[in-house]
Amino acid sequence: MLNLEQYHTWVFDCDGVILNSNHLKIEAYYATAKNFGANDQQAQALVDYHIKLGGISRFVKFEYFLKQILKQPFTQDDVDFLLQDFGREVRKRLASCEIASGLQALREKTAASNWLVISGGDQEELRAIFAERKLSSLFDGGIFGSPDNKDEIMARETGRENIRRPAIFIGDSRYDHESSSRAGLDFVFLHKWTDFPGWQAYCASQDIATLPDINALLTHTC
């Protein structure tokens, strides 16, 4: 059981937590690789790497795609193409994807706390999508993403006292758990929309609290 009122700060991942978008990101990575000229096997290799590194910035994934999958030089022009094309592929998918139910009710129950989004997604893209989907007002602490990684963002926002302990991170990936643990935050894993294939074994081995979705946070409280 969670005591919602004990937390001064709530930090949320985006994909698989707030938006049902993990499968859409997979589609976008595959499409971007194909648009760049990759064959089906190479495009799938990028998707596999993306799934393996859930929550990690797209910059890291595209560097791996160019160097390790395509075996070609890493140039800024290629990176810019991939980032811009991926952004287009993502935005057209996230404009209409499912939003987690229960967000507004949870915000009302934790009205005294500070809410942030810390995601591996592109920061400006996230802010535009959240504004378009009318979600920005829920996150008074800000919406943050790459090129900074989650460790860097949490350290910076803690230093600014934008993250105040006790604090909790709501995520759906191994990196969410690892980065929030390094930052000293409590953690709950939401599994309904996760694309982390080994989440059951990992959460059991780390003694992580698991719930299906945001709505379940409202019913598992004291």
Score class of each variant (00 low, 15 high):
85 D>E: 15
43 A>Y: 02
58 R>K: 05
24 L>P: 13
35 N>S: 15
49 Y>W: 13
24 L>N: 08
37 G>R: 04
32 T>H: 08
49 Y>M: 12
35 N>P: 09
61 K>H: 07
80 D>H: 07
71 K>I: 12
59 F>V: 02
76 Q>L: 06
77 D>Y: 11
29 Y>T: 00
58 R>T: 08
35 N>H: 14
32 T>Y: 10
63 E>Y: 05
29 Y>D: 00
54 G>P: 04
67 K>C: 13
50 H>N: 07
68 Q>R: 15
50 H>G: 03
56 I>N: 00
82 L>N: 07
82 L>H: 10
58 R>F: 09
26 I>P: 08
62 F>L: 00
63 E>W: 09
63 E>I: 12
63 E>C: 06
34 K>Q: 01
60 V>G: 03
48 D>N: 00
54 G>M: 01
80 D>S: 08
54 G>Q: 07
70 L>H: 00
26 I>N: 13
61 K>V: 03
81 F>M: 08
51 I>F: 01
27 E>S: 14
58 R>L: 03
36 F>A: 07
85 D>N: 15
72 Q>R: 15
30 Y>E: 04
85 D>W: 05
46 L>E: 00
41 Q>H: 10
22 N>A: 09
80 D>A: 08
43 A>H: 01
51 I>S: 05
74 F>W: 11
20 N>A: 09
32 T>R: 04
30 Y>A: 06
43 A>N: 05
62 F>V: 10
48 D>S: 15
76 Q>F: 02
20 N>K: 14
21 S>H: 11
63 E>P: 07
84 Q>S: 15
72 Q>I: 14
47 V>P: 01
37 G>K: 12
22 N>Y: 05
19 L>Y: 11
74 F>Q: 10
59 F>Y: 10
40 D>L: 10
39 N>F: 01
27 E>I: 12
70 L>C: 10
78 D>P: 01
41 Q>M: 12
23 H>W: 14
49 Y>E: 14
80 D>Q: 13
39 N>G: 14
80 D>T: 14
55 G>D: 02
55 G>E: 06
67 K>N: 15
44 Q>C: 03
55 G>Q: 00
39 N>L: 09
40 D>P: 01
40 D>H: 12
71 K>C: 14
59 F>K: 01
85 D>I: 06
82 L>M: 03
52 K>R: 07
42 Q>G: 02
44 Q>I: 06
84 Q>K: 15
